[in-house]
Design a protein around this nucleic acid. Structure first.
Lengths: 199, 199, 199, 199
DNA sequence: TATGAATGAGCTTTCATTCAT
DNA sequence: CATGAATGAAAGCTCATTCAT
């Protein structure tokens, strides 16, 4: 009563974080069909507790995807004033892939209907667009590159590395290197398809 | 048993193809969790018939993935004697992506344990390795590129295009273009991670 | 092939009847919240079999309620040409209550949204209306009685008897007797509320 | 414990009443499966508080049913000395139905095992028995009518009215009118089943 | 004492798989 | 051989109840 105790709330908040972390791990290991039971077990809580924090499985997935998007937005914004726009874009793609696990793509599909996720996705796209614009103006990337392209390519390195029969946690850096080279204006060939429009 | 005529066999073979085609379609539309019931319905047969041809769902998935691998092996082998090894590699990646639907990656994960799929995967890797070697020797691709790299990058364009909020069936060509540019020796930067070893 | 085998269908049809009977029993004993598992156990089938026959619990309930309504419609129609319209109405109420178990009322609420049940309910109401009209014209019932009244009173005797601390399967006949006396034109007092309109 | 002041007790008592009122409302709206969470929300307290006042859901239901029984006992006793025993019985049934919402019957089933409810039910039965006896002696009701009959018929009007597809809060008065006419000695036919014995 | 987070048993429903016909 | 009815092991989710704060 006297002290507006954050203690209970703190416990709940801690469980929420535990759950998000556990869910991310389990989804990464088992794919988007991992069961809530497994996630609860990993987090060390009961099944019911998952649903106290996330009313549906979809909501849990949306929280994960939204969290990633929010983090990426912060990264992109932090790089807006960089002196070297080309390096900034490369840094963005590196940091983005570094915080990813392979599933984000599949999870994204699940949370497609979530309006909060859509909103964040659009914000992220906008932030990336600015980053790309700067790099384009500086001649650091191919002139036909758009923000949508970069958005769609974020997961590609992690995804490609994920198929390796001999997995290595940093292998994605190799494929990011190849893609980044492909973004360079030097030796860029005409692309056979226009960039996607953003809705 | 009594009448081992070829007619029955022909029927069975036709059903098998019907089922594979139906499964590919349904998996493409609904993802790897599409139900056997849906696949049977699409193929116009009863659920039991699916299991007569493929003892488990995993076996059905393995047949699909194996089919893709076999097709890609044929493509790669057909391009071995090409006069322009660089063009041959690009052609391979284009034909490969063209025959793909986004799910192959997810399906591949499911059929990871299947020995026949593993065998085909290794054969495909070997064929690609030759293709890459030729292109490397011709100076058509970056010198640090391996067959494993190309194998892992096959699905990347389709995968990236699949995230587009405004999907277009040929958008993958754009991202294949970027990746192909990234494979070029011109302006290639050192890659921060070694290529994966093949087991 | 040659004989359009009703054998398999016969088995399924038998299971359907077994399930309806079991459901009726279990609902009567435990109320409308009886679990599908209990119903399946009573019918001697697996849980999944219930859902093969009735896609949802609501559909199962609707089948039960609809079955009762259909039976009552048949009874009402069979009594339309009776020489003694007053006796016909009494007979209808008796036969109706005889085929009832206490739950119909609660089950009816569950299946309120089912269009087939609504259709049957309306047909039943119409049939009863005719029955009541004849009886009214013959001076066998109070002149202010409507078909809707009789419809709403069908379950009353069974419901009242169901509260008895010393239950007897035929006790409802006592309360049907009282209600039937209340429907008589002799000594009927003015009713304080108009009959409900049928939608 | 330390301060056994009346303030806390008053608060607790008020919460108890709030909860009973909220529960009655919610049960009336949603049926006997309404959740404790809904009831707590309606009462404006936390879920835990419900269980502080009523150890189980069954106990809460028993309190509601018991409350109704107690109120009816008071009504019956208040009518014992009426100059017109027939009018008194009619008045009892009217007041009883007026204080009812449709659920009492379902709730009663739930609280069947509660000894306090059983005790009150028996007291109510006794009070009604006296009321009926007086009316019978005065020739105001059919000679075969018992207190048990009247007890069992209390809910019938509300129950019948509850099925109406076009609900009206006073429709029960119509069916109480019909039943009251059925209790009249005038034109009473022999009942086909004896009255239930009270245990 | 009130709170509401946590629990876990239980519910409806789905689906790969089996098997009688 | 094909069929599709039956199976039963999960899955997602709800809710009465407990208990730390």
């Amino acid at each position: 009563m006297t002290t507006p105790g954050p203690s209970l709330r703190a416990d709940a908040a801690r469980n929420r974080e535990l759950l998000l972390a556990a869910a991310e791990e389990v989804f990464a290991e088992q794919g988007p069909d991992a069961s809530i039971a497994d996630i609860a077990r990993r987090a060390g809580v009961a099944k019911g507790t998952v649903f106290r924090h996330f009313a549906t499985k979809e909501e849990l997935v949306a929280a994960i995807v939204g969290g990633h998007f929010a983090a990426l937005i912060a990264v992109a914004r932090g790089l807006l004033d960089s002196a070297d726009p080309g390096a900034a874009l490369r840094e963005f793609l590196t940091v983005a892939a570094d915080g990813l696990n392979q599933d984000l793509t599949a999870l994204q599909t699940i949370s497609e209907g979530d309006s909060r996720v859509t909103e964040l996705r659009n914000q992220l796209h906008t932030s990336i667009e600015v980053l790309v614009e700067r790099a384009r103006e500086a001649g650091a990337v191919r002139p036909d590159l758009t923000g949508a392209d970069v958005f769609l390519l974020i997961c590609a390195p992690v995804h490609a590395a994920g198929f390796s029969p001999t997995p290595h946690p940093d292998l994605w850096r190799r494929y990011l290197g190849i893609i980044v080279d492909g973004l360079s204006p030097e030796g860029a060939t005409a692309l056979p398809h226009p960039a996607p429009e953003w809705p």
